[in-house]
């Protein structure tokens, strides 16, 4: 059976403390529940959640949706945003997890990556050096989400094919955003050429697409 691997790389740096992290938890939970009701997703979707602040944590290794249980995402009250380290960790995981097609093994669908941040990388040099390596992994889509005023759209653009900006990281906005994420995931398991990108559904009103 073909798997659709989807990675979430989530910023849990100090600035997310309080309402934003609560909103993120709620929105993710809503998204997983929505996906659980999708026939295609229930059959093929595998999810992984990786968080980054000062440290990088694999909160949930790549797990099939059927067995997936959303862990509580927490964050420290302050500290740096090690986006680069997050990408470095992600690179290792994707390289190890994602199955390529061979005559004796069914290849996975091309993986999707969603990266969510409310700031900018504190480890800029590592961040920039990881970008080409992440792109080599041949994701079907890399979607960046910059939430709040301090989030750096331009920095995210260097990595992601699509960048969306949320004015605030409140519950309603995040919920809309992750609804759109689940729509995007549902687009992910369709046959396409070897390098063409996934066509993303139009984002909802609360989500500003950065062109």
């Amino acid at each position: 059976m073909r798997r659709l691997p989807v990675y979430f790389l989530l910023d849990t740096s100090g600035s997310m403390f309080g309402e934003p992290i609560q909103a993120l938890n709620n929105a993710l939970s809503g998204m997983v529940n929505t996906l659980r009701m999708d026939a295609q997703a229930l059959d093929s979707l595998w999810l992984s959640i990786i968080t980054f602040d000062r440290d990088v944590k694999e909160l949930m290794p790549l797990t099939e949706l059927v067995s997936f249980q959303l862990p509580e995402i927490t964050c420290p009250q302050s500290g740096p945003t090690h986006t680069g380290s997050g990408l470095e960790f992600l690179h290792a995981r994707v390289s190890a997890d994602v199955r390529k097609g061979t005559p004796t093994q069914k290849g996975d669908w091309r993986p999707l990556l969603f990266i969510f941040t409310d700031g900018k990388p504190s480890d800029l040099q590592l961040y920039r050096s990881m970008i080409p390596k992440i792109k080599e992994l041949n994701f079907a889509a890399i979607v960046g989400c910059a939430a709040g005023k301090a989030a750096d759209n331009e920095m995210l653009r260097e990595l992601a094919d699509t960048v969306v900006h949320l004015d605030t990281a409140d519950s309603a906005t995040l919920k809309q955003f992750f609804k759109w994420v689940s729509d995007t995931i549902e687009q992910g398991n369709k046959s396409m050429g070897t390098t063409s990108q996934v066509v993303l559904p139009p984002p909802p009103q609360e989500v500003n697409l950065i062109i």
Binding site: R2, K100, G101, K106, G107, D108, W109, R110, N138, N189, K190, S191, M192, G193, T194
Partner: peptide
């Protein structure tokens, strides 16, 4: 024409 990833193939239209 089987690619390394699912869905990766070639078409008569290429």
């Amino acid at each position: 024409d089987v690619g390394a990833f699912g869905g990766g193939t070639r078409f008569i239209t290429m």
